[in-house]
Design a binder for these strands. Sequence first.
DNA 1: ATGTTTGCAAATAGTTTGCATCCAG
DNA 2: CTGGATGCAAACTATTTGCAAACAT
Lengths: 148, 148
Amino acid sequence: MNVGSDRTEERLLSFESICREHGLSITPQRVAIYKELVSSPDHPSAISIFNKVREYYSNISLDTVNRTLLTFQKIGLAKVVESSGDPKRFDPNLEPHHHFRCISCGEIIDFRDEFYDALEIPAEIKEKFVVLEKKVHLEGFCDQCRAT
Amino acid sequence: MNVGSDRTEERLLSFESICREHGLSITPQRVAIYKELVSSPDHPSAISIFNKVREYYSNISLDTVNRTLLTFQKIGLAKVVESSGDPKRFDPNLEPHHHFRCISCGEIIDFRDEFYDALEIPAEIKEKFVVLEKKVHLEGFCDQCRAT
DNA sequence: ATGTTTGCAAATAGTTTGCATCCAG
DNA sequence: CTGGATGCAAACTATTTGCAAACAT
């Protein structure tokens, strides 16, 4: 597990209250999974979180990790990354941000862009649908893979 | 199978030349799968194309459909939709367009927007990566599901 | 106390692979 | 003819479900 930053401590507090709001128990498994998720610099899959948590919580099961991550998604503590790949990847970053995905290695890189954040929703969409999330998705080759 | 429009006929011709360019045979299976794909109004999964093609090509196998769709993606005849769901969905629409996805029913709706098409790539990204694709992804509730 | 959560095992869904046969070029 | 494509079966990966035991509140 990564060493807890102030940011992580802060998020742990809101984690507990959000769980309570939804009538969910604060179990050690959920705490451990949440800590791993928010201290992840990337977009971890259930398996990668499972492997990290298992280092110090040896008898946790992959099913619990899967179930818990889906629960987190449901109550708004995580998002599922839009990607065309097989294993679901989770995103602990709830701030507005955008994604670049390398089509060669599959790496997904977050980036901030105030201009993108401020994009207007087209009228034809706004009239018919309720838009809750807006994200620019870029694709191509990352610096590692462009060299190949 | 949908009745062939002029657009479909047109695309079939370029389909054959693109296959030849890549040294791929024009097999009846590939033609059938391609016809289904491009006449799809939505973003079909391998299974849904399999089911439609099977109506008149009864002994085609799902494996062939899967393999063929991946081949189409490789040679640029189709794209895989960025989505967080399980079954891969393919996109026959190669024109620049954007997606709205309903988080309730999973429907993905294409929309055109010239302003979005013209978005600049942020300098920090352009410097490091090669960007081949740019798409705005919106999420929320579609008109059907917002009522529920 | 009791209703939720967990871990295990089995089931399921989607996709991929190996291989013999078949067919397009 | 011949190499690539297909169909079948089996393997594999990711995820989900049923259920009894364990735990949080």
